[in-house]
Structure formats: structure tokens, C-alpha cells
Computed example of a mutant assay.
Amino acid sequence: MIEVRAARPEEFEAVAALRWRWVAERDGPPPGVDRGRFVREFAVWAREHATTHRCLVLVREGAVIGMGFLAITPRVPAPQSFSRTSGDVQCVYVVPEARDAGLGGRLIDGLLELAVELGVERVTVHSSSRAVRAYERHGFAVSPLLLQKVVLFRPRR
């Protein structure tokens, strides 16, 4: 049986290991970064940011095989509502051996259901080219009004 559910605090190390695996799969292992340290620090970060970055996991037979985050950002109040939020889907990942079985779609659906539960007005995603069609199948569409600018990013160590 496979389930999509909120990550439990004790599962954040497994989530961190998936994040490491994803980056290593895409770009190779990050040079000069200790995997164990990353996993520990990511788990602490995930616990500290659990209210703004809701994590869902995909679990099969007790093992975390996928993850996804909904980052929640407050929006400027409007006359109709002072409590407004936007969501951003981040870090949706399924282990390669479980891909192409609709499991990523289950994570996307779970994140969108969570957004509805939280009253989020809009959900965005910055997708890999491989996943664009999956997001489109789950209701995402290109918006000519949503612009982005990539800025130089220097990771803090």
C-alpha cells in the first residue's frame, strides 16, 4: 500500500536524504558538502519551518519514497481579506525506481488539496522540463502574467 500524508518530524532525515539524492542525480554529488551533515541540518530546517513549508511524503511499506513541499507565503491584505496566502510547490521528487506510475501526480494532488484546506489563493510551481506535463495534467497552466527574474544566488555555508 502506498500513502501520501504529512511528513512526521522523525521522517525529515529520510526527506533530506531524498533531497540529497535528487541533487546528486541531477548534478552529481555536491563537491565539498558532507552528506551526513546536510541530512542533519536539513532535518532541523524542516522542523523549524514546518508551518511555512508543509511537507508531504509518499510512503510505501514504511519507507519514504517521495516528497513534496508547499511553501506558504503571506500576501498583502486586500479590502475583502486581510488574511491572504500564496503557495509554491517545491521539491516534488519520487525515487527513480518508483517513477512513471502516477505517484508524482498523487503528491501534486495532495499538495493542491492541502492548499485548498489552508485557503491558499494561488499555487505556483517552478518545474523541471520533464515534469511540466505532469503539472499540466493536474491543472497548472502557463500564465502570461506571472513573470520571474533569476538572480545570482550564493549558498551560505
Rank of each mutant, 00 (worst) to 15 (best):
S128L: 01
A101Y: 10
V39I: 14
G62I: 07
V33I: 11
E11Q: 14
A17P: 00
E97K: 01
G66L: 05
K149N: 05
L118I: 05
T85S: 14
A78K: 09
A7F: 08
V142C: 03
H138W: 11
P144N: 00
G32K: 03
L112M: 13
G105V: 04
V44D: 11
F38A: 08
V89W: 10
C55V: 15
A63M: 06
E61M: 01
M67E: 13
E97L: 03
E61G: 01
G102H: 09
G87P: 11
V59H: 00
P96M: 05
V44Q: 10
R21C: 07
L118Y: 09
V94F: 04
I108C: 01
A141S: 08
L145H: 13
I108V: 15
D109C: 04
E11V: 05
L152T: 15
F42S: 15
P77V: 04
R106W: 10
T124D: 13
P74A: 05
F82H: 13
G87F: 10
V89Q: 03
P31H: 07
L112S: 04
F82C: 11
R154C: 11
A134T: 15
R35N: 07
A17W: 01
V150W: 07
L111K: 01
L103E: 09
V39C: 03
Q90R: 12
V150K: 04
L18C: 04
S83K: 10
F42I: 02
T51A: 12
Q80R: 05
D27C: 06
K149A: 13
L58E: 08
Y93K: 00
P96C: 03
C91T: 14
A6C: 06
E117D: 15
L152C: 04
V4E: 06
V132Y: 04
P31W: 03
V132E: 14
E41I: 02
R133D: 15
P144R: 01
W45S: 02
E113T: 13
L70Y: 10
I108D: 03
V151F: 10
V125R: 06
L145E: 14
A101G: 12
A6N: 11
A141F: 09
E113M: 04
W22Q: 15
V120W: 08
A115R: 07
L114M: 11
A115F: 10
E13Q: 10
M67R: 13
C91V: 12
R37P: 01
P96Q: 07
R106N: 03
